[in-house]
Design a protein around this nucleic acid. Sequence first.
DNA 1: TCTGTTTGCCAACATACGTTGGCATCACTG
DNA 2: CAGTGATGCCAACGTATGTTGGCAAACAGA
Lengths: 200, 200
Amino acid sequence: MTEIDTGRVAARPHRRSDATRTAILVAARERFAADGYDRATIRAIAKAANIDPSMVMRYYGSKEGLYAAALDVDLRLPDPASLDPRDVGRVLVGHFLDLWEENEVLSAMLRVGATHQAGAERMQGVFRDQLLPLARQVCPDPEQAPTRAALIASQVLGLALTRYILRFPPTVALGREEIVEWLGPTVQRYLTAPDPSPHP
Amino acid sequence: MTEIDTGRVAARPHRRSDATRTAILVAARERFAADGYDRATIRAIAKAANIDPSMVMRYYGSKEGLYAAALDVDLRLPDPASLDPRDVGRVLVGHFLDLWEENEVLSAMLRVGATHQAGAERMQGVFRDQLLPLARQVCPDPEQAPTRAALIASQVLGLALTRYILRFPPTVALGREEIVEWLGPTVQRYLTAPDPSPHP
DNA sequence: TCTGTTTGCCAACATACGTTGGCATCACTG
DNA sequence: CAGTGATGCCAACGTATGTTGGCAAACAGA
């Protein structure tokens, strides 16, 4: 009911409240990233956006609606066809690092995903719609793509968890290049290596 | 005030309330693991333990105190001296999988650590006091132990995150042996491989 | 048996939360 | 300039939370 457009086709409704709306989204990402779902209260978000809590309800319907509007993620994964196949691992790791440093959306998604069902499903969606297709395109047997994409997710999310959420000191101290050199080959192997043979 | 012993040295105070006390701890782990810190309410924990919420306060002082009492973790890491050095990676991965399946303490710690400061510090403590010493003992240059232990933590926690918390379907579908064969070599490399050389 | 402590529950507190409805004010359309 | 909708704030609702104090019953030691 709040999202009907103002009459014209769909081109730039140009609502006077757009500034407020985006201020709310920015503050929401900030609070979700710092505190997770439950402690990121609508009142705190509103205060950070310098508006009244009731505006959040008017523009986004509910806290769940706000979460849904604030946290959609486009990983902007590179097209693997344009890459040296032996470099994919390193490039991916570097790309993910850039994404995590660039803004707090991913931190917010991870913090919320850890305790909130909708957040976990949101992350499953990002995985399924963005990382998995890339794996299907690159890895030798497309039937293994889900497994391989999941392994990559485990390593990349694990690094983000220890570096940006739990803030393990040695992980925080690592430089970008070090991380790329350590994790790149791992991701490369998960993506392109033949099945690991059972141990003797 | 609640934890003074009953007079004797320290040998078995034998309080009649011990059953209640452990029931509270069990219920607390259960709720923390399922809901994280904020949504695991003292009332819900008390209901799961079939006692009154005020008992939780009496025996553990506060919700923070309950968390501190409920979630201490002993990883029981194997002594690397007793292992074939080329098997350490696989053994460690298998051991961590057993720990995660064995009970819900680690799930609780991870869910709480993602949104709660004290939880994150608790995980840092486990890392520092248990995983890092093992790395110091095994990896070639002990000065690199923090980095290498942190890398292992990132991979192992990342798997746990995607498998037990976010429940990515492909990760959940993996069998124990598959995980060991995929992650074992990764952990082995993080632990014992020479520095990765910068890419040309 | 009498006395003091422990165990447990009940009722209540202060606070914080998401959410709602009403009422001004501003901007635009006719 | 009149009027209609959008924008914003205020006050309040119902509910839930962590936490507290008091009181009854069960137990332990003399």
